[in-house]
Simulated assay, not measured.
Amino acid sequence: MSWSKLKQQLESFLSPTLVDRVEYRATSYRYSPDKSGNCYITVDKKNVLNMSDITGSIRWYLTEQEIKNDPDLLIPVSHEEIEAIRKETKGTVPEDRLQVIGRSRKSSGHAKELLSAQAVLSKSNFTVAATTFLSISIEESLESHDILLNILALIDRRVGKKRILNMSEQIKLKHPAVQYFYELRRRTL
Protein backbone atom coordinates (compact mmCIF):
# COMPACT_ATOMS: atom_id res chain seq x y z
CA MET A 1 0.00 0.00 0.00
CA SER A 2 1.33 3.45 -0.84
CA TRP A 3 2.21 5.90 1.93
CA SER A 4 -0.45 8.41 0.86
CA LYS A 5 -3.21 5.80 0.96
CA LEU A 6 -2.02 4.44 4.33
CA LYS A 7 -1.83 7.96 5.77
CA GLN A 8 -5.33 8.73 4.50
CA GLN A 9 -6.74 5.60 6.13
CA LEU A 10 -4.99 6.27 9.45
CA GLU A 11 -6.18 9.87 9.50
CA SER A 12 -9.75 8.77 8.78
CA PHE A 13 -9.71 6.91 12.11
CA LEU A 14 -8.38 9.84 14.17
CA SER A 15 -10.53 11.09 17.01
CA PRO A 16 -12.39 14.24 15.86
CA THR A 17 -10.76 16.28 18.63
CA LEU A 18 -7.29 15.35 17.35
CA VAL A 19 -7.84 15.76 13.61
CA ASP A 20 -5.98 19.07 13.23
CA ARG A 21 -3.45 18.31 15.96
CA VAL A 22 -2.05 14.84 15.14
CA GLU A 23 -0.37 14.13 11.81
CA TYR A 24 1.44 11.16 10.33
CA ARG A 25 4.54 12.15 8.37
CA ALA A 26 7.15 10.36 6.33
CA THR A 27 10.42 11.15 4.67
CA SER A 28 11.78 9.19 1.79
CA TYR A 29 15.06 9.12 -0.03
CA ARG A 30 14.73 9.68 -3.74
CA TYR A 31 18.03 8.17 -4.84
CA SER A 32 18.11 5.34 -2.38
CA PRO A 33 15.45 2.77 -3.27
CA ASP A 34 16.58 0.31 -0.60
CA LYS A 35 16.12 2.92 2.15
CA SER A 36 12.49 3.03 3.24
CA GLY A 37 12.68 6.46 4.83
CA ASN A 38 11.47 7.55 8.20
CA CYS A 39 7.95 7.78 9.57
CA TYR A 40 6.90 9.74 12.62
CA ILE A 41 3.90 11.20 14.42
CA THR A 42 3.60 14.92 15.09
CA VAL A 43 1.38 16.66 17.63
CA ASP A 44 0.76 20.37 17.12
CA LYS A 45 3.47 20.40 14.42
CA LYS A 46 6.12 19.00 16.81
CA ASN A 47 7.79 15.66 16.13
CA VAL A 48 6.68 13.57 19.11
CA LEU A 49 7.21 9.96 18.11
CA ASN A 50 10.04 9.10 15.77
CA MET A 51 10.84 5.40 15.85
CA SER A 52 14.52 5.81 15.00
CA ASP A 53 15.24 8.76 17.29
CA ILE A 54 15.27 8.24 21.06
CA THR A 55 16.24 11.84 21.79
CA GLY A 56 12.70 13.16 21.39
CA SER A 57 10.48 14.71 24.01
CA ILE A 58 9.22 11.36 25.28
CA ARG A 59 11.36 9.47 27.76
CA TRP A 60 13.07 6.35 26.45
CA TYR A 61 14.59 3.91 28.88
CA LEU A 62 18.13 2.65 28.37
CA THR A 63 18.40 0.27 31.34
CA GLU A 64 16.23 -1.79 33.63
CA GLN A 65 17.42 0.30 36.59
CA GLU A 66 16.05 3.49 35.01
CA ILE A 67 12.61 1.91 34.91
CA LYS A 68 12.85 0.62 38.48
CA ASN A 69 13.95 4.04 39.77
CA ASP A 70 11.44 6.10 37.76
CA PRO A 71 9.25 7.90 40.34
CA ASP A 72 6.48 8.42 37.76
CA LEU A 73 6.05 4.69 37.24
CA LEU A 74 3.75 3.30 39.92
CA ILE A 75 3.50 -0.47 39.92
CA PRO A 76 0.59 -1.75 42.01
CA VAL A 77 1.00 -5.02 43.92
CA SER A 78 -2.18 -6.99 44.53
CA HIS A 79 -3.19 -8.66 47.78
CA GLU A 80 -2.87 -12.08 46.10
CA GLU A 81 0.73 -11.36 45.13
CA ILE A 82 1.55 -10.33 48.71
CA GLU A 83 -0.04 -13.55 50.00
CA ALA A 84 2.02 -15.62 47.54
CA ILE A 85 5.22 -13.99 48.83
CA ARG A 86 4.11 -14.55 52.42
CA LYS A 87 3.61 -18.27 51.73
CA GLU A 88 6.91 -18.45 49.87
CA THR A 89 8.80 -16.91 52.80
CA LYS A 90 6.81 -18.99 55.33
CA GLY A 91 5.65 -15.84 57.16
CA THR A 92 9.11 -14.85 58.42
CA VAL A 93 9.23 -11.52 56.57
CA PRO A 94 7.71 -8.38 58.17
CA GLU A 95 4.53 -7.01 56.59
CA ASP A 96 6.05 -3.78 55.25
CA ARG A 97 8.91 -5.71 53.65
CA LEU A 98 6.43 -7.91 51.73
CA GLN A 99 5.28 -4.83 49.79
CA VAL A 100 8.88 -3.97 48.91
CA ILE A 101 9.64 -7.53 47.75
CA GLY A 102 6.43 -7.68 45.69
CA ARG A 103 7.05 -4.32 44.04
CA SER A 104 10.66 -5.21 43.29
CA ARG A 105 9.74 -8.51 41.63
CA LYS A 106 6.94 -6.96 39.64
CA SER A 107 9.05 -3.98 38.54
CA SER A 108 11.80 -6.32 37.25
CA GLY A 109 9.33 -8.16 35.04
CA HIS A 110 7.71 -4.93 33.96
CA ALA A 111 11.09 -3.37 33.13
CA LYS A 112 11.98 -6.29 30.88
CA GLU A 113 8.64 -6.01 29.06
CA LEU A 114 9.05 -2.24 28.56
CA LEU A 115 12.60 -2.55 27.26
CA SER A 116 11.69 -5.32 24.83
CA ALA A 117 8.66 -3.34 23.56
CA GLN A 118 10.86 -0.28 23.13
CA ALA A 119 13.51 -2.30 21.27
CA VAL A 120 10.87 -3.73 18.94
CA LEU A 121 9.52 -0.23 18.25
CA SER A 122 12.92 1.19 17.34
CA LYS A 123 13.44 -1.63 14.84
CA SER A 124 9.89 -1.69 13.54
CA ASN A 125 8.66 -0.48 10.23
CA PHE A 126 5.89 2.09 10.72
CA THR A 127 4.05 1.06 7.57
CA VAL A 128 3.98 -2.61 8.61
CA ALA A 129 2.67 -1.73 12.09
CA ALA A 130 0.09 0.69 10.65
CA THR A 131 -1.12 -1.92 8.17
CA THR A 132 -1.41 -4.42 11.02
CA PHE A 133 -3.39 -1.86 13.04
CA LEU A 134 -5.83 -1.38 10.17
CA SER A 135 -6.38 -5.13 9.83
CA ILE A 136 -6.94 -6.13 13.48
CA SER A 137 -9.60 -5.16 16.00
CA ILE A 138 -9.24 -2.12 18.22
CA GLU A 139 -9.26 -4.40 21.31
CA GLU A 140 -6.27 -6.34 20.01
CA SER A 141 -4.40 -3.09 19.42
CA LEU A 142 -5.15 -1.80 22.92
CA GLU A 143 -4.09 -5.06 24.58
CA SER A 144 -0.98 -5.52 22.45
CA HIS A 145 2.53 -5.15 23.84
CA ASP A 146 3.45 -3.17 20.70
CA ILE A 147 3.83 0.50 21.63
CA LEU A 148 2.85 1.76 18.18
CA LEU A 149 -0.37 -0.31 18.09
CA ASN A 150 -1.28 1.06 21.54
CA ILE A 151 -0.74 4.63 20.38
CA LEU A 152 -2.70 4.24 17.16
CA ALA A 153 -5.59 2.71 19.12
CA LEU A 154 -5.59 5.43 21.78
CA ILE A 155 -6.00 8.23 19.25
CA ASP A 156 -8.61 6.28 17.29
CA ARG A 157 -12.19 7.58 17.19
CA ARG A 158 -13.54 4.08 17.90
CA VAL A 159 -12.19 4.29 21.45
CA GLY A 160 -14.80 6.27 23.36
CA LYS A 161 -14.72 8.53 26.38
CA LYS A 162 -15.83 5.85 28.85
CA ARG A 163 -13.19 3.38 27.69
CA ILE A 164 -10.45 6.03 27.83
CA LEU A 165 -11.39 6.99 31.38
CA ASN A 166 -11.53 3.33 32.48
CA MET A 167 -8.00 2.66 31.18
CA SER A 168 -6.18 4.96 33.61
CA GLU A 169 -4.78 2.15 35.80
CA GLN A 170 -3.51 -0.07 33.00
CA ILE A 171 -1.92 2.90 31.20
CA LYS A 172 0.34 3.50 34.22
CA LEU A 173 2.12 0.26 33.32
CA LYS A 174 2.71 1.27 29.69
CA HIS A 175 5.67 2.98 28.06
CA PRO A 176 5.90 6.81 28.48
CA ALA A 177 5.12 7.22 24.76
CA VAL A 178 1.79 5.43 25.26
CA GLN A 179 1.14 7.47 28.41
CA TYR A 180 1.79 10.69 26.48
CA PHE A 181 -0.82 9.87 23.84
CA TYR A 182 -3.26 8.66 26.50
CA GLU A 183 -2.97 12.02 28.30
CA LEU A 184 -3.34 13.87 25.00
CA ARG A 185 -6.55 12.00 24.26
CA ARG A 186 -7.88 12.27 27.83
CA ARG A 187 -7.42 16.04 27.88
CA THR A 188 -9.40 16.41 24.64
CA LEU A 189 -12.47 14.52 25.89
Rank of each mutant, 00 (worst) to 15 (best):
I85E: 03
M167W: 06
V128Y: 11
D146R: 06
I58A: 05
V120K: 12
S57L: 11
R97D: 14
V77A: 07
L148I: 03
E169K: 14
S104E: 09
E95D: 14
Q170V: 02
L73P: 03
E64T: 01
V77P: 05
M167P: 03
A111N: 05
R59Y: 11
L134W: 00
L121R: 08
T89R: 07
L121I: 00
Q118N: 06
E83P: 05
I67T: 07
D53Q: 11
E88S: 11
W60F: 15
A129S: 07
V100N: 01
N69G: 03
K161W: 09
G160L: 05
S104C: 08
E169R: 13
T131Q: 08
V120H: 10
E113Y: 07
V120A: 11
I155K: 09
P71E: 10
R157V: 05
I147F: 04
L134I: 05
S141D: 04
I138W: 08
G109S: 12
D96A: 10
S108T: 08
D53R: 12
K161D: 12
K172F: 00
A130D: 00
N125L: 02
R97M: 13
G109M: 11
E169N: 15
A119D: 14
K106Q: 11
D53T: 01
R97V: 12
L149E: 01
I151F: 05
L115T: 06
W60I: 03
R163Q: 14
M167L: 14
A153S: 04
H79R: 15
V159H: 04
V120F: 05
L154R: 01
A119K: 13
D70G: 03
K90S: 09
I171D: 02
T63V: 02
E66H: 04
D72P: 00
E88Y: 14
S78V: 13
I101N: 10
T127C: 09
S78G: 12
V100F: 13
L134D: 04
K68C: 06
E66V: 00
Q170H: 13
L74T: 08
D146S: 09
R105L: 12
R86L: 02
Y61K: 07
E83L: 15
E139A: 07
E169F: 15
L115P: 02
R97T: 11
S57R: 09
P94I: 07
L154F: 06
G56I: 06
I138A: 07
